[in-house]
């Protein structure tokens, strides 16, 4: 069977669904954060697949790769800030369980 765009889009959708399930089911803040990253990466696969299947002058649409470059950069910045926030939270609450973090300030 020949590979089609559908194959890649389905893998991307399934990976996104797995990440979504993780965000909804898990209670550890760090793992929820990892699942968010997983969803972001799944969306990246959609971008690359579309760029490869819609050729511009016989080449993939490289603008998608540039966009991906930016997405990866922003994801790195987001992870750095998010982990710093988790560490600050852990310092004040001594936990990373989201069910135990239920007050705004104290």
């Amino acid at each position: 069977m020949e590979l089609t765009l559908n194959h890649f889009l389905f893998v991307s959708g399934a990976l996104f669904a797995i990440g979504l399930a993780g965000v909804l089911v898990r209670r550890n803040l760090l793992i929820i954060f990892m699942c968010l990253e997983l969803m972001l990466a799944a969306a990246n696969l959609t971008l690359v697949a579309f760029s490869r299947f819609h050729l511009v002058e016989g080449q993939p649409a490289y603008d998608a790769h540039v966009l991906l470059f930016f997405i990866i950069t922003v994801a790195a910045a987001e992870v750095a800030v998010g982990l710093a926030i988790i560490v600050a939270l852990f310092r004040s609450k001594e936990t990373t369980d989201v069910t135990k973090v239920n007050t705004m300030k104290y």
Binding site: V48, S51, R52
Partner: peptide, 14 residues
């Protein structure tokens, strides 16, 4: 999968 889609730079960056 990225590399399979001929996105070498993006795959390596990933």
């Amino acid at each position: 999968l990225f590399i399979q889609l001929d996105a070498y730079l993006v795959g390596i960056l990933q």
